[in-house]
């Protein structure tokens, strides 16, 4: 291992410019893919949090007895998609309305009797708040005696869902295109790096070298270049995040919800390593004697 490693390091030094070009190409490629993942991660993170605000309001008929209300609540609880519910009595609903109206609550004085119905606010598990799940739930609830009306933000739910699925599809396509392009670019650079060394491989073969002996220094060289590309990418992204991006966030607080997935940083060096080795393997090709 010592000799192939020495050869790989010697070769990197002897051809430092083309190696530097390869490192920068891999770093840029990884940065582009990281950017796509970063945007995708944040869209996903944002859309996952939106359903927390989504709820279904079930209004009960006036005169629904306590036992009927209890039955309705236990029916709702049976549904696996429901995370929690809150019963709001007629009096609570009126108090809430009063506090919302503050100085205009004299309007309510005109009503002799409390006109507001009792209701139950139902919240779904984040991942279950999908249009079709909610629609099924509403259909089931409508069959239960004592329920007057059911309200929910159908459009809101549908738009969250379409943003989520749309961003996932676009993100997937974009990542696939970017990754393919990047792999091709890295492969071309690494191939260029090794192409003019074919003569050297030929000579090694004629001197009695085995495939492993020929390949190992090249693979090590590819691995070192790839790893250096990954590390360069981390340095570039971290510099960008802590200088440009943190200033942007302080200037535009709306961006404060944006998070930087730390796993991405851990993944960059192995990704670079894999790219370098794969590029070298493809560039060397099959060694025929």
């Amino acid at each position: 291992m010592q000799y192939p490693l020495k050869l790989a390091l010697q070769s990197i030094w002897n051809e430092k410019w083309i190696n530097l070009l390869s490192i920068l190409t891999i770093a840029s490629g990884l940065a582009v893919v990281s950017l796509v993942i970063f945007v995708m991660y944040n869209i996903d993170y944002f859309t996952k949090r939106l359903p927390e605000r989504f709820s279904v309001m079930i209004y009960l008929k006036d005169g629904t007895s306590e036992s009927e209300t209890g039955t309705i609540i236990s029916e709702i609880r049976k549904n696996r998609n429901v995370e929690k519910l809150k019963y709001i009595s007629k009096a609570e609903a009126l108090n809430e309305l009063r506090s919302t109206m503050k100085n205009s609550d004299y309007i309510l004085e005109g009503f002799g009797e409390n006109p507001l119905p009792a209701s139950i606010e139902v919240k779904f598990h984040k991942e279950k708040a999908k249009p079709e799940t909610v629609k099924l739930f509403v259909e089931e609830m409508n069959k239960i005696k004592g329920i007057d009306e059911i309200h929910f933000a159908d459009k809101f739910l549908r738009s969250i869902h379409s943003v989520k699925t749309g961003s996932q599809t676009i993100g997937f396509m974009l990542s696939a295109i970017m990754t393919t392009g990047m792999i091709f670019l890295c492969y071309s650079t690494v191939k260029m790096l090794f192409y003019h060394r074919r003569e050297e491989m030929e000579t090694l073969k004629l001197l009695g070298a085995t495939r492993g002996f020929i390949r190992l220094p090249f693979l090590l060289e590819g691995a070192i270049v790839g790893l250096a590309g990954g590390v360069t990418c981390i340095i570039a992204l971290a510099t960008f995040y802590y200088t440009v991006f943190s200033k942007l966030v302080s200037a535009m607080p709306a961006l404060s919800f944006v998070v930087f997935p730390p796993i991405m940083l851990y993944m960059l060096p192995p990704a670079g390593l894999l790219l370098g080795i794969t590029g070298a393997l493809i560039a060397i090709g099959r060694i025929r004697f």
Partner: peptide, 10 residues
């Protein structure tokens, strides 16, 4: 076979 060629060349 191709694995024996290096041995011959040595």
């Amino acid at each position: 076979d191709s694995d024996s060629i290096p041995l011959l060349r040595r």
